[in-house]
Amino acid sequence: MLKIIFGTESGNAEMGAEDMVTALTEAGLEAVAVAMDVYDVEELADEEHIILMTSTYGEGELPMTAAPFYENLKTVSPDLKGVKFSAFGLGDSTYETYNQAIKSLMVLMTELGAEQVGEPGFHDAALPYSISDMAVCWANRQFIFA
């Protein structure tokens, strides 16, 4: 079961996550999307394989809805040995802090013992490719045609 935990501010990451679920489900995999602001970090240690998905705001920060997830993760500091995660970030290379948020999450998860699987995916809003296309392509490469 692939659980996509997304942090969104404009709804873009949420749309990307939903499209990823559709693509994975259509390929016969079990997948579900849940927002970071309703996800309990205490459950992370029990997850098999999660996909973290978030956009970047302000000075390389996580969206408002995702920031508590990051802070709780730091505070609770669960032992994530055995937990696999993949990462997909949404950013805009017009700004210096391009995709900083997903990168911070990747670092934190690794520090907590989780194992990053596969290549991280990055959507760049400065390029003319849709979030859906990029997210689904990446999911296909990581999980379906792996």
């Binding site: 404009s10 709804g11 873009n12 749309m15 805009d92 017009t94 809003a125 849709s130 979030i131 859906s132």
Partner: peptide, 14 residues
Amino acid sequence: DHQGSKNISAQFER
């Protein structure tokens, strides 16, 4: 020149 910020239109188009 901030075209990236306009891409939420994809959500509304859908």
